[in-house]
Each structure stands twice: as structure tokens, then as C-alpha cells.
Design a binder for these strands. Structure first.
Length: 634
DNA sequence: ACGGATCGCACT
DNA sequence: TAGTGCGAT
């Protein structure tokens, strides 16, 4: 349910920027012959021509809609170009669009607080930039920068006038405007400039809304499309909302909106004004009631969050109708594919953004059998996320089995899975200054891979050292970044130190008993067995069905690393960036007891990487990483 | 055979 | 917390 936020007292300047039929634009950039043509992006095409997920404005002119099938689109628009979403591992691969979205975000984040709201939308808080412009370059001086801004739509001004641009320009430069409108005018100019930059640097057009809060900015960003922007002066808010159908408001597109219509007879946002806050609270609860009362008055205190990256990564696929999965072998096969993609994505998040995900969740759906009230849902299951494709696959399968077990206890019928997804969530920045214990290990070095065998190493365990190489790692990546991390946030579980090859060598020198770069890490990780047993006896592990045999899995993985690595490099043509098929050394694998055996200078260093173990709380049921490495404060 | 694949959030 | 549910694009 929506929740009202405290209202900032100062007027803000907020923009919502929305890419125009984004996936289509990405494909048009790849293939310029598609520009100006009726075009749509479809995923899959074997069934009814695939499902449309983006439609160009030319095609919309023919009545083509999202949610149509490819065949249907062809019918209403025979000349349409249907471009397929790339497929990898048997599923739609959206990475192309994700990285295109990142290009845009990088530009839009340059003028103030920027929140990535989705793959093709951002919110901007331009309050400071607008204030600054008001002081230094009031919107009436330079002619040139007004040209784009003058194409804005101003809510409340005539939009069909022949003199429209002159009127808009006059509004933007109006000397007698109040300070709120002046700030909005500055915001409009800034956004116009940003949109030009986006177009110049990415070839993508976008539309935008500029208002005093997120709700209003979002409401109007799509009002004039494509490639236009719309401003909402305070003076036009009431009239605008008065006639706005409830379903158009964000959060009211579903059941809540229907209930407003059906139960209260509310058709427009304006209709809400006739209800007292108490009445709305009584109907929908305190939070939602207050929220409704406020939005009816154009009030929304929601802040723009400073976040350029997604909070979770998910990979899923549906298996409709006859494609439903009916045995555990096929589930395993598909889960492996999904986990492979997920692993790749969290690995690049780690490499590029220095972020670590902590939780792995599995979702599945079972087909609803005929009419019979087999409405039982397949339960979601989650567990601590261990890095490494094979570990993720293993854990995901365990989670599935656990969920299936629960499901079958009540549902005595057979099963058939119609959708599967795996999600990595609870993603945290690695605090700068410290970094994490990352053990980048590659399979046997192929000719194309730059892995460096550690020739000085004396293998203590041939099965490990003969096959394992530490990749060279970029030193500056390990330097503390200058940007100040906001503190007071829980850095969660992991505070660790990035361990580059050079650093591992340096440590090795100080610690002669442990020879070689991989050996130091191996040394740190030995004793897992003892740790595992300890956790078990502390009752910390038993409720994690996905992890019961994690130890065995780890061992098997080390021994299999060679063979599997070879498989991968042959199918991947060896062109992967360094680290892409690496797996990580997990903090959870470190035995605190091992750390204590280290010489003091090494121990000091190691203990900067990980937090001291908390006294196990036997009442707790989860063996999460955080129960072992709790946040410093909390 | 539910438009599919992803996301975010509030609630319990 | 883990798990559910809703809403959005």
C-alpha cells in the first residue's frame, strides 16, 4: 500500500525522464535502417509471432499496441519491422537494453540527485541546480539555451496556439513570476539541456516532466510524447488533478484504484477532495488514507533517492501451457541456465560497481489445475547467496526442492512448473578503504586468458594448485575511492578486503609457511569442515535446506573446476573479459579459528577484512552471513 | 497459452 | 527475517 511521506517545506524541482519506446530506439541505433519505420521489439516468435514489448510511434499510428502478438501486429500493420530480443541460454537477454539504460543514467546524473526508477526512467532532484541558475544566470539572459526549453509544454498555457513557443518563452522568462515558477523554469531549461545531451551522446530521445514533486513529474512526463517535456506550475495543479482519471495515478492502476471507483464512486483524483482524511483512513488504513488525501491536493513528499543502480538482479522465464516443466531434470536444466545468467550479472556488478549481493531467492509458479481449487501457491525460498555459478546453481536447486516439498505436503497432485526465476538481492556497496576478500580464480589457463600461474608456489594440494590461478587484478580498483560513503548505514555483513594477486603475494612474503598466492587464500579457507560442524551444532545451519551440503558442493567444485572450466572456455570461445567466469571466495567460508592461528601482523590485516564473529545466538534460526559477521553498530 | 521479464515496495 | 502480495513498465 502507498504511504505518505513527510513533506519537505522548501519547494523542490523534480524531473521525471522517460525514454521513448526505449527498446525500439536501442534497436534503431543498432540498425539505422529502422529509423522512421514502424517497428516493434518482440521477445520470442515461435508462438504467434512473439510478444511485443516496445512499439515505435510510427507503428502506434497503425494501432499497434504493446501486449499484442507479432502476428496481430503484422495484421494491423503489414509493413511493421519486428526485431527480436536477443536470446541467450534459451531465454530473453535484456543486457543490451540494460547497458543502454546505464549510458543514459550516466548523463542524467550529472546535474543533481538521480534515481534510476527502471531500465528506462529516472527521477532527478534539480532543486540545487535550479537555485544556482536563478542566482547566476536567470532564464532571461542567453537566447540560445532557451531554444530547446521554449519547446516545453506548460500545463495551463494554451498548447495549440500558433505562437506557442513565444508564449512559452515568455512564461519561462516572466520577470513577475513567483519564485516557485522561476525555479520550475530553471528546471525546464536544465532538463532541456540534459535531453539534448542525451540525444547527442546516445542518439536516444526522451520525454520529461518537471514539477515540484515526483508524483506530478511522473504524471506529465508521458503527456506529450515523444521527445517533449511538460512543466507543471503550482497554479495548474488543481485543475489538472480535478479531471484526472484515478487509474492514471501511479499506485492506483490496480485494485486500489478499482476500489476507489467501485466502493467510493471516485472517478477522478478531484473526486477524492470530497472525502475527509478520516474517512479515507477508515476505508484504507491510516497510511493509505493519508496518502490519498494528500495526492488529491497534489502533495507528495517522496524524495528522490540517490541511486544509479538496481537494488536486485533477477532472471526468470515462463513455461506456458504445453511448455510447463514436469520433472526435476528439466527444472534443473532451466535453473542452471537462469543461474548462469544471474551469476554473470552479479559478477559484473561486483567488478564494475564493487557491490555484493547477499540473498538468493527462488520463485516458481505451478499451473493451476482445472477449476479444482488447487489455488495453492508455490512458496518462495531464499538462502544466503554464495558467489560462483556452480554454487548458485546448487543452492537454487536445493531451494526448489525445498519449495516443492512444502508445496506437495498440501497439494497431493502432480506438479507442473509454469515459471521459474532466481533473484539476487540485499546488495551492498563494499565500503571504500576496506575491500573484500575476493579470490578470482580461473579454470586452467587457456591461451587467450591472461591468467598468471604462480610459479613460486609450492603446491600443497595438487588438485587445487595445479588448476587454480589468480588473475591479475587492477590495482587502482583496490584503492579507496575518494568519494565519501554515507555512514550510519548498515554496511551489513561483509567488510572485507579485496585481495589482488599482488597483495596476496605481499602477504605471502610475510608469511613463509604459506607459499604462493592461491595458497594464502586456501589457507584461510581450510578448516571449513570444522566451521561447518560448529555451525551445525550451534543450530545455525539446519533451517537452510539449500545449504546442507554446501561443504560437499564446495569440495566437489574445486575438484571439478578443471573440467568445467575447460568446458566453458570451449563454448565461450575464450573471448570473455577477465573474471567473467571467475568465482568468489566467500566470506562465509572463512573459519575465524583459522584467522586466530595467523601471526599477529597477518591477523591484524585479516581482521580488518572481516568483522569478528558474534556469539552465536542459538535462538536464531538462520545461519546468515550476518549472524557471523554482524554490522558494527545496530 | 497469464503479454514476459524485471523491478520496487509495504505488510506481516 | 523470510515470505507474500501489489503495482509498475
Amino acid at each position: 500500500m502507498p504511504v505518505a511521506r513527510p513533506e519537505p517545506q522548501e519547494p523542490r524541482v523534480i524531473a521525471h525522464v522517460d525514454m521513448d519506446c526505449f527498446y525500439v530506439q536501442v534497436e534503431q541505433r543498432r540498425n539505422p535502417a529502422l529509423r522512421g519505420q514502424p517497428t516493434a521489439v518482440v521477445q520470442y516468435n515461435d508462438w504467434k509471432g512473439g510478444g511485443l514489448i516496445a512499439v515505435s510511434y510510427e507503428a502506434r499510428g497503425f494501432g499497434v499496441k504493446r501486449s499484442m502478438r507479432g502476428d496481430e501486429a503484422k495484421r494491423v500493420c503489414p509493413g511493421i519491422n519486428l526485431v527480436q530480443v536477443p536470446v541467450a541460454r534459451g531465454k530473453a537477454d535484456l543486457n543490451l537494453y540494460r547497458s543502454a539504460g546505464s549510458e543514459v543514467v550516466a548523463i542524467l546524473a550529472s546535474k543533481g540527485k538521480c534515481e534510476r526508477a527502471s531500465i528506462d526512467e529516472v527521477y532527478l532532484d534539480l532543486t540545487d541546480a535550479a537555485k544556482e541558475m536563478l542566482l547566476q544566470a536567470p532564464p532571461d539572459s542567453p537566447e540560445e539555451i532557451l531554444i530547446e526549453a521554449a519547446k516545453s509544454n506548460i500545463l495551463g498555457l494554451p498548447s495549440d496556439a500558433s505562437e506557442k513557443e513565444k508564449i512559452v518563452r515568455a512564461w519561462l522568462c516572466r520577470p513577475d513570476a513567483d519564485s516557485e515558477d522561476k525555479l520550475l523554469a530553471c528546471g525546464a531549461i536544465i532538463v532541456a539541456q540534459l535531453r539534448v545531451r542525451v540525444l547527442e551522446e546516445t542518439q536516444f530521445t526522451c520525454s520529461a516532466g518537471i514539477a515540484h514533486n515526483k508524483m506530478l513529474a511522473k504524471l506529465v512526463s508521458g503527456m506529450h510524447k515523444p521527445a517533449q517535456q511538460t512543466v507543471v506550475p503550482s497554479s495548474s495543479v488543481q485543475d489538472f488533478l480535478a479531471s484526472l482519471p484515478v487509474k492514471k495515478m501511479k499506485q492506483l492502476g490496480g485494485k486500489l484504484g478499482s476500489s476507489l471507483q467501485d466502493d467510493l464512486g471516485v472517478e477522478t483524483i478531484g473526486d477524492l477532495l470530497s472525502f475527509t482524511e478520516e474517512k479515507l483512513q477508515e476505508q484504507y488504513g491510516v497510511n493509505t488514507g493519508t496518502w490519498l488525501w494528500k495526492i488529491a491536493r497534489g502533495i507528495s513528499g517522496e524524495e528522490v533517492e540517490d541511486r544509479l543502480l538496481p537494488k536486485s538482479h533477477g532472471c526468470g522465464k515462463t513455461f506456458p501451457g504445453p511448455k510447463a516443466l514436469k520433472n526435476s531434470a528439466s527444472v534443473k536444466g532451466w535453473l542452471d541456465q537462469l543461474c548462469e545468467e544471474l551469476s554473470e550479472r552479479i559478477q559484473s556488478d561486483l567488478n564494475q560497481n564493487k557491490r555484493i549481493a547477499q540473498t538468493l531467492t527462488l520463485h516458481a509458479r505451478v499451473s493451476k489445475e482445472n477449476e479444482r481449487d488447487s489455488v495453492k501457491k508455490f512458496p518462495s525460498k531464499s538462502c544466503p547467496l554464495r558467489y560462483g555459478t556452480w554454487k548458485i546453481q546448487e543452492d537454487a536447486m536445493k531451494l526448489f526442492e525445498s519449495g516443492l516439498h512444502d508445496f506437495l505436503e498440501y497439494q497431493n497432485t502432480g506438479w507442473s512448473i509454469t515459471s521459474l526465476s532466481v533473484t539476487a538481492s540485499k546488495i551492498f556497496d563494499i565500503p571504500s578503504g576496506t575491500s573484500s576478500i575476493l579470490r578470482y580464480v580461473k579454470g586452467p589457463s587457456s591461451a587467450s586468458s591472461p591468467a598468471i600461474p604462480d610459479s613460486s608456489s609450492v603446491p600443497e594440494d595438487p588438485s587445487l594448485d595445479n588448476n587454480v590461478y589468480v588473475t591479475p587484478s587492477n590495482e587502482e580498483q583496490c584503492e579507496p575511492s575518494t568519494s565519501e560513503k554515507e555512514d550510519g548505514k548498515k554496511y551489513s555483513a561483509i567488510s572485507a578486503k579485496q585481495c589482488s594477486a599482488n597483495e596476496a603475494k605481499r602477504i605471502s612474503k610475510k608469511f613463509p609457511e604459506v607459499k604462493g598466492t592461491s595458497s594464502i587464500l586456501k589457507f584461510l579457507s581450510r578448516g571449513q569442515s570444522a566451521l561447518h560442524e560448529k555451525r551445525k551444532s550451534d543450530g545455525l545451519i539446519c533451517s537452510h535446506p539449500g545449504l546442507e551440503s554446501s561443504l560437499e558442493a564446495s569440495r566437489a567444485e574445486e575438484h571439478n573446476a578443471s573440467a568445467q572450466g575447460a568446458d566453458r572456455s570451449s563454448t565461450n570461445c575464450g573471448a570473455e573479459p577477465s573474471g567473467s567466469n571467475a568465482w568468489m571466495f566467500n566470506v562465509e567460508d572463512i573459519d575465524p579459528a583459522v584467522v586466530e592461528e595467523l601471526p599477529p601482523e597477518i591477523r591484524r590485516e585479516i581482521q580488518g577484512w572481516i568483522r569478528p564473529p558474534k556469539q552465536p545466538n542459538t535462538k536464531r534460526r538462520g545461519s546468515t552471513i550476518s549472524s557471523y559477521f554482524p554490522p558494527a553498530r545496530s
